[in-house]
């Protein structure tokens, strides 16, 4: 499963079979697997022995109240934070064994991230924001911008291509951020409360766009949210309470 092209445009598959979106299709080996994760912030435990798997192409919602460890789990799985104990395997490779250089390369090529807000570069237009990850990966400027335009189109914000983040609504900026997270053709998108700063309807539309596009592209999504209506767009739910996955945490 490595014949994918970097910076693939919309509509280009990834070689695997399309995901049916029911969450019932599974592969033998999970794309991302955490085993016995333990992490403390100072003396406050954030994760206590958490094991969770993300299969290729599925959308997994990690839910739970504030302070339950959701974001810490996302950071560990994305290789942003190293756990105190336990391991994270991505496509069979253990993240904790990778040198920092390889890890950051992996994050650039295989992972996309979306946060609640503030991830777009304020000085750049929406188009250039989306083109940026491709250019950092070595794609030429004009091809990168062409691809960026296609992804903005896909998220319904091509009309905002020349707008800077401050000139867009929260929902439009978040759609541009999703386009930027997906433009490099990542296999996993980590989305931390992607609708948290939006009103109800805008949040709904952003989440619908993310779910639809990720399924179409076969991209797996690890979605952190405290909102059940947002989690309902996922195929499964993993529920954290006090740093532990609750029983029945994974509901098919």
């Amino acid at each position: 499963m490595s014949n994918r092209s970097k910076g693939s445009g919309p509509g280009e598959g990834r070689g695997g079979s399309p995901v049916d979106g029911t969450g019932t299709g599974s592969t033998a080996q999970p794309l991302l697997a955490a085993r016995g994760l333990v992490k403390a912030h100072g003396r406050t435990p954030a994760l206590r022995d958490v094991s969770v798997e993300l299969r290729a192409g599925e959308i997994l919602a990690v839910t739970g109240p504030s302070g339950s460890g959701k974001s810490t789990l996302l950071h560990c799985l994305a290789g942003i934070v190293r756990p105190d104990a336990g391991s994270v395997a991505y496509d069979g490779r253990r993240l904790e064994e990778l040198p920092e250089k390889r890890l950051s390369e992996l994050r650039r090529t295989d992972f996309g991230v979306v946060f609640q807000f503030g991830q777009l570069v304020p000085e750049l237009t929406a188009l250039d924001n989306v083109a940026l990850p491709l250019m950092l990966a070595g794609t030429g400027r004009s091809l990168a911008r062409e691809r960026a335009g296609e992804w903005l189109e896909r998220f319904g914000v091509r009309g905002q291509a020349k707008a800077r983040p401050g000139e867009m609504s929260g929902g439009q900026a978040q759609r541009a951020a999703l386009a930027r997270a997906l433009v490099t053709g990542p296999r996993v998108v980590f989305a931390d409360e992607p609708t948290g700063a939006l009103d109800s309807l805008a949040g709904e539309q952003v989440m619908a766009a993310l779910a639809h596009t990720a399924r179409e592209a076969g991209t797996a999504v690890l979605l952190v949210t405290h909102d059940a209506r947002v989690a309902a767009y996922a195929d499964r739910e993993a529920r954290l309470r006090d740093g532990t996955l609750t029983p029945l945490e994974v509901t098919a």
């Binding site: 209506r229 989690a231 309902a232 767009y233 996922a234 195929d235 739910e237 509901t251």
Partner: peptide
């Protein structure tokens, strides 16, 4: 879990 299942269906 049943509620979440129904919410996924409706979504």
């Amino acid at each position: 879990a049943a509620h979440m299942g129904r919410m996924r269906e409706l979504t």
